[in-house]
Nucleic acid binder design. Structure first.
Length: 1111
RNA sequence: ACUCGGGUGGUGGAACUGGUAGACACGCAGGACUUAAAAUCCUGUUCGCAGUAAUGCGAGUGACGGUUCAAUUCCGUUCCCGAGUACCA
């Protein structure tokens, strides 16, 4: 019997699914282990060979841990909100929900072919309302919390309000600053707007005016990475900064804790470093300078307060707010000109011309409080408005940029560091002894820093200050395909929705273009965003319980509205309706007819009072309506509304869907229906009826927030939802999150180093502070996967001809067109000429100039991408070699963390290994050849016990595989398997005693073949050929235990070196001591040859290692 | 420019706290089986020199230098490649 991997893999994948082998319980006596892959975005292009690398690594580790006796959580889901789907929708008109769903299906089928052990019952999609309900809920927690600076943690904002009401906001020491401090009674006198404004300054999720990249031509706001060199990535249109109301997360408050937390997690040094750089903490001083003749003060930030006496000028950022008030009259024109110049400079120019020195003097002078010295105040673009205070004191002798600036504008330079300053360059050393520095004279600079700050604090002119480079995280996007904010704006006040009003669903739209004034597409849907309800506009008639659409309405199929006495008529209409259905109703009915949701049945066209709903759940009193075209008719809308009100009084809630939704987002429709029935907490799910307005809005200007949340919203907490994915009461049950706790192993690429990882770390800390979870770091250990690059192939066509020259015949590449060729039609570097001719019609008649009868292609390592024709599809490899081979080859390629180019060629070697393994069990002619000493009833017998040599091979393998898997060194583990199989083949070992433990070791790496052989070894033919796992899966076997005594040796082949250079090997007993060894060594012929009769200077002997003779 | 990684055969890579450099695999060369091919198996394969050969000698982990009985591993200088950050005061 041959190794038929196609058949084997299909059987076992189906069997594992059927037997729920990967289903994981939330409670177990076993210790827990949580392995997680970074949330993938389901792109439309599908997987290439680079994507599964990390998934395979985490899969191996999960299976290994399971065998080691852990309860292993290893889920998978999709970060399914995001721009590409929306972009695609803009281009093709297909709804993002539809394309996303399609992509996920493809993605999943690709993953399944590789045989991962995901518990698919826990699958998540961030765009699923049942999921983003909780994203919105957590947002509300952030909105309703503030960071307490004394306790250094998040607290409910209600505590802050209480404090303001009773104590106000007063300084602990020092003066009251108007606008910042207030008393309790002042607070209570403030208008609602003012109070909300103050609270907004403390909320962890807050809204303020911020700058966005606005592209007038595209009429939309662009993300930073959509702006390249100051123009839009698409189309190259001009992008300018525009102030708009935006949402932010106050991540800066968590900067210190994010830094401290890094010490408790096991991330790579480079990863921690990146995060530290991003946070960019610096300690220094904020110093206030008086301005000559002007009452205001300039506040500057510096990390080197010790150099204050070397401050020869001040520099303000061109955006600094004091500029207009300090500039003297004579300089005003010049300053205005300079500011205009700076504004006109595009981002591109500013970056490109970093070295160019520009600036402008304001004519104003600051005063050094220690010396009363006048210091000129300049403006220059090298000072950034966003960092520190947007103003610096320039110390040219100690800072290179200040130095260049001073030289350029001929500003005299004061030397405070003696010989450390050469006049050629600035010197930023902290080791110099200060001169010309008043009370700091004679001090070492690094000692002077603290002394200077103390003095400034004592004099009240400055204070110690910590600065961060990190900014608060922008949290709104003017886009459609994201979570809507559960926020209503009413007269400038942001009102949160109530938790029970969640999820606030994304309304379905037909166009995805931007809204007015840079708002997102949602702003176009007035019936969703605008919440001014014409309550008073409704007529008496509509509100009356007896309201009905009269006889004429009978013409409208599907809708009958009558008073009670028309009941009989109604029933016969209902019967008729059941026959005359619409296509959309049929679609829904197919989905729901036999499904019992929460034990409830759904009926179709079942009369309720005088009304015949499309579908109704009588038990839960929920009506489902599918709206058709005529429901958009204004008159019809009024009728519908009245009907809805009336039914509500009868206790029926109505949810509505459009035909469009049914046709394009059926899964969401079904899910909504299920949830409405499951919850039955009177939460109306449909956007139109989800309306908090009656209690909260003032009715003047009430509208929903039309921005949506960014991609990282859903991915910041998904690892928690995986623990308890179906909970309808809370985002994750506390008992369950206590059990699973942190992610023990998190696998993913470095591209998420600062974005996703920082955000999810912050969210975790907030949830921890609010006592919603019991740990404050999400990921205990991070394993970075390297990128798999593409190895591109090129053909060379002589310019203006159709002649292709083999790469090694080419002398001057410039005479040729270098063309990417599909790597799948190249074998190594040899082009498959026939396939190439068929590849593109224009190459059909191509001529080839060969070398040694073959066409050699050029090669280059590039990013793997469709456009470079260097992608390799995992499906094809699984088809050709099997998933086990594919998995092992990806791992065999090298360490998981390093990037490397893909080369399919080596895959044969791994495949050969699996076939060789198979041959330990099966002979092509003889069939099964394994033997056992203790045969099961149906097993072949007559085997002998394993020999010492065989046991040694096995146990050496156990030891090494365990060590290597434990340290994620999968490539060396695979080598070890190869060595083991090679050795067992040499030993002609076919003993179950040896082979079965080997299969268990191998099963995390090659699950299909291992399961197949394991079942064959233990159970009868009939059961395993059907994929029957009655006898238990190999994944529930227990891991072989390593027995060190089997490896104990009594002798060793010692390498003997002369002066460190290996000369010979000598077999010695391990218990020999130095002296005995020396005696033996000196007898050795080769050693004697090298000694040439002289005695050795020294003999170094390291037991069980080596011997070195020094001569 | 700064910070962090990394440079080992024709290729991917191995060598764990300094102790036999090149495991394992690809590729290549030769051979066996076969009418032939595929598949499979066997042998060789860091480079140079000498030898029919077993083998011996020399060089060798980007380059140069140092520490050490011994360095791919530790230290210093330098070159190259990759990643991240970028006027951050």
């Amino acid at each position: 019997m041959e190794y038929d991997f196609r058949k084997i893999e299909l059987i076992w994948q189906a069997a594992w699914k059927k037997n729920e082998t990967y289903k994981i319980a939330n409670n177990s006596l076993k210790p827990k282990f949580y392995v997680l892959d970074m949330f993938p975005y389901p792109s439309g292009i599908g997987l290439h060979v680079g994507h599964p690398l990390g998934y395979i690594a985490s899969d191996i580790y999960s299976r290994y841990k399971r065998l080691k006796g852990f309860n292993v959580l290893h889920p998978m889901g999709f970060d399914s909100f995001g721009l590409p789907a929306e972009q695609y929708a803009l281009e093709t008109g297909q709804h993002p929900a539809t394309t996303t769903e399609k992509n996920i299906t493809t993605f999943k089928s690709q993953l399944d072919k590789i045989g991962f052990c995901y518990d698919w019952d826990r699958e998540l999609k961030t765009s699923d309302p049942l999921y983003y309900k909780w994203t919105q809920w957590i947002f509300l927690q952030l909105f309703n919390s503030y960071f307490c600076n004394t306790q250094k943690k998040a607290l409910p904002i209600s505590l802050l309000i209480k404090k303001y009401e009773t104590k106000g906001a007063m300084p602990i020491t020092g003066e009251i600053i108007p606008g910042k401090h207030f008393t309790a009674s002042e607070w209570n006198e403030f208008t609602k707007q003012r109070q909300e404004e103050i609270l907004m300054n403390r909320r962890l999720a807050f809204s303020k005016y911020g700058e966005v990249n606005w592209c007038a031509v595209l009429g939309t706001v662009l993300a930073n990475d959509e702006v390249v060199n100051g123009v839009s990535e698409r189309g190259g249109h001009l992008v300018e900064k525009k102030k708009m109301r935006q949402w932010y997360l106050r991540i800066t408050d968590y900067a210190d804790r994010l830094l401290e937390g890094l010490q408790t997690v096991d991330f790579s040094d480079s990863m921690k470093e990146m995060q530290r750089n991003w946070i960019g903490k610096s300690e220094g001083a904020q110093i206030n300078f008086e301005i000559k003749d002007i009452p205001q003060k300039i506040s500057i930030y510096t990390t080197r307060p010790d150099t204050i006496f070397g401050a020869d000028f001040m520099v303000l950022a061109p955006e600094h707010e004091l500029i207009s008030s300090i500039t003297i009259t004579e300089k005003q024109e010049e300053v205005a000109k300079y500011i205009h110049y700076v504004k006109s400079r595009s981002e591109r120019e500013r970056i490109a011309e970093v070295k160019q020195i520009t600036g402008c003097f304001t004519g104003a002078y600051a005063i050094n409080s220690f010396t009363e010295k006048k210091i000129p105040i300049w403006i220059a673009e090298y000072v950034l408005a966003g960092y520190g205070t947007g103003a610096i004191m320039a110390v040219p002798c100690a800072d290179q940029r200040d130095f260049l600036f001073a030289k350029h504008f001929n500003i005299p330079i004061t030397n405070i560091i003696g010989s450390y300053y050469t006049g050629e360059n600035a010197n930023n050393s902290k080791e110099a002894i200060l001169e010309n520095s008043d009370f700091l004279n004679g001090l070492l600079m690094k000692d002077a820093i603290g002394i200077a700050i103390n003095k400034m604090e004592a004099l009240g002119i400055g204070e110690k200050k910590v600065n961060y480079r990190m900014r608060d995280a922008g949290f709104s996007r003017q886009r459609y395909w994201g979570e809507p904010f559960p926020i209503i704006w009413s007269d400038g006040i942001a009102l949160p929705l109530d938790a029970k009003e969640l999820p606030l669903q994304l309304p379905h739209v037909n166009t995805y273009g931007p809204g007015p004034d840079g708002e997102g597409p949602l702003a176009n849907i007035k019936e969703w965003s605008s919440l001014i309800i014409p309550l008073q506009e409704r007529t008496e008639k509509e509100l009356s319980p007896n309201y009905s659409i009269m006889e004429k309405d009978n013409e409208v199929p599907g809708y009958i509205n009558s008073s009670v006495h028309q009941w009989k008529n109604t029933i016969s209409f209902a019967k008729q309706n059941r026959k005359d259905t619409t296509a959309e109703e049929d679609i829904i009915w197919q989905e729901l007819r036999d499904k019992k949701i929460a034990g409830c049945k759904l009926r179709r066209q079942h009369p309720i009072a005088g009304y015949i709903p499309d579908f109704v759940c009588l038990e839960k009193k929920i009506i489902i309506e599918i709206d058709r075209e005529y429901n958009n008719n204004e008159e019809q809308k009024l009728f519908d509304k009245g009907r809805e009100e009336w039914l509500k009084e009868a206790g029926f809630n109505m949810i509505r869907f459009t035909n469009y939704q049914v046709n394009n987002a059926l899964d969401i429709v079904i899910k909504d229906i299920e949830q409405a029935i499951l919850n039955n907490d009177k939460v109306a799910l449909n956007a139109g009826s989800n309306n908090p307005i009656f209690t909260r809005g003032t009715g003047v200007e009430v509208k929903r927030e039309t921005s949506t949340m960014p991609g990282y919203a859903g991915s910041s907490w998904y690892f928690l939802r995986f623990m308890d994915p179906n909970n309808t009461q809370i985002f994750c049950d506390r008992k369950i999150s206590n059990y699973w706790n942190q992610v023990d192993l998190y696998v993913g690429g470095t591209e998420h180093a600062v974005g996703h990882l920082l955000y999810s770390r912050m969210w975790t800390k907030v949830l921890f502070d609010l006592d919603l979870i019991g740990f404050d770091e999400p990921f205990k250990k991070l394993l970075n996967q390297g990128m798999i690059q593409g190895s591109s192939r090129f053909v060379y066509r002589k310019k203006n001809t159709n002649k292709f020259y083999s790469y090694d015949t080419i002398l001057d590449e410039l005479l040729f067109d270098k063309i990417h060729v599909d790597v799948n039609i190249v074998n190594g570097v040899e082009l498959n000429i026939e396939a190439f001719k068929k590849w593109r019609p224009e190459y059909e008649n191509a001529e080839f100039i060969l070398s040694n009868d073959i066409y050699v292609c050029g090669t280059e390592v590039e990013k793997m991408s469709k456009s470079k024709y260097n992608t390799v599809n995992p499906d094809e490899l699984c088809e050709k070699y099997g998933a086990d081979t594919f998995r092992m080859y990806e791992m065999f390629l090298g360490p998981v963390e390093t990037s490397k180019p893909w080369d399919t060629k080596g895959i044969e070697g791994v495949h050969r290994f699996l076939r060789k393994l198979w041959r330990l069990f099966y002979d092509d002619f003889k069939g099964p050849i394994w033997t056992t000493t203790t045969p099961a009833p149906l097993e072949r017998s007559g085997g002998e016990a394993a020999t010492d040599a065989e046991l040694k091979v096995l146990h050496r393998t156990i030891k090494k595989i365990e060590e290597d898997t434990e340290r994620f060194s999968f490539n060396t583990a695979i080598s070890t398997f190869m060595i083991c199989v090679n050795e067992l083949t040499d030993l002609k070992c076919h003993k179950k005693e040896i082979l079965q433990p080997l299969l268990i070791l191998l099963s995390p790496y090659a699950p299909h073949i291992s399961e197949e052989l394991f079942q064959q070894l233990n159970f009868d033919q009939i059961s395993f050929s059907e994929g029957d796992l009655q006898g238990g899966s190999i994944f529930d076997a227990s891991y072989p235990t390593f027995n060190s005594s089997l490896l104990a040796e009594t002798t060793k082949e010692y390498p003997v070196s002369i002066n460190g250079k290996l000369r010979t090997n000598i077999l010695l007993a391990l218990d020999l001591e130095q002296q005995q060894v020396e005696e033996i060594i000196l007898q050795n012929e080769i050693i004697q040859k090298w000694l040439e009769g002289n005695p050795p200077k020294k003999i170094i002997f390291v037991k069980n290692k080596m011997i070195n003779v020094v001569i």
